[in-house]
């Protein structure tokens, strides 16, 4: 259903029509659908925020908060920042939005343990399907680019006290392997992270000119 809507919505956003406030209803329903079906469409969501920016009287707090939460599910991409730039200061001061901003800050600064404590389940999350799973994906991304080996207990903590089964699930997903009992092998980082030596290279082109003039 969200897939079908993606197509029809993208037609709404061509050219000047994307600023037509009459489309707002459809776009807001689409946000709702994204939450329910675990789908995501940044461009459509930004179009909603832009319409609010152009028509402040149509602003809806719930929809905006929902858009921000959906943007969190697309970390490590910076969608959240893009959304934030379109929501004015007054609305960013609203309690509901502030809570989401706080969650974003925790995730961006990788304070995952605090995040799991702060995420007070249902009310702020507005029943967004697959929210926590998406956040865990992001956390796994950060672990994946940082660690060569990680203690199982540390990984479990980062993922919000994940059970052994859950950890196994994530390990399978990313091809991480157990090692010596309590350790997990993530990736061979030595390949990607090694000291670089940059020596000077002068290309022929830059010298050719000099040689040509001095030969005159």
């Amino acid at each position: 259903m969200a897939e079908n809507m993606r197509r029809s919505v993208s037609n709404l956003m061509r050219g000047i029509d994307r600023y037509n406030p009459e489309n707002l209803g459809t776009l807001e329903r689409y946000v709702e659908l994204q939450s329910k079906e675990n789908a995501y469409d940044l461009e459509a969501n930004l179009a909603v925020l832009k319409l609010y920016q152009f028509n402040p009287m149509y602003f809806q707090l719930n929809v905006s908060a929902q858009i921000l939460l959906k943007a969190l599910t697309n970390l490590p991409h910076t969608d959240f920042v893009l959304c934030k730039c379109l929501i004015d200061d007054v609305h960013q001061g609203e309690d509901q939005i502030m809570k989401v901003l706080y969650l974003h800050d925790l995730l961006e600064t990788c304070q995952f343990r605090k995040f799991w404590v702060s995420v007070p389940q249902s009310e702020v999350l507005m029943g967004i399907v697959g929210f926590e799973e998406s956040i865990r994906k992001y956390i796994c991304h950060v672990v994946g680019i940082t660690y060569q080996h990680i203690d199982k207990s540390v990984l479990s903590e980062l993922l919000g006290d994940a059970s052994d089964d859950e950890i196994k699930m994530w390990m399978n997903k990313y091809g991480w392997t157990p090692k010596d009992g309590e350790k997990i092998f993530i990736a061979n980082q030595e390949e990607n992270v090694k000291p670089k030596n940059i020596t000077e290279k002068i290309d022929f082109e830059s010298v050719a000119g000099i040689l040509a003039t001095s030969a005159q």
């Binding site: 992270v193 670089k196 940059i198």
Partner: peptide
Amino acid sequence: DFYIDQDMIHIADTKVAR
């Protein structure tokens, strides 16, 4: 740049020749 191996940080710097 760096990576972490359990509790150890391994650091890779870039050295630039003059």
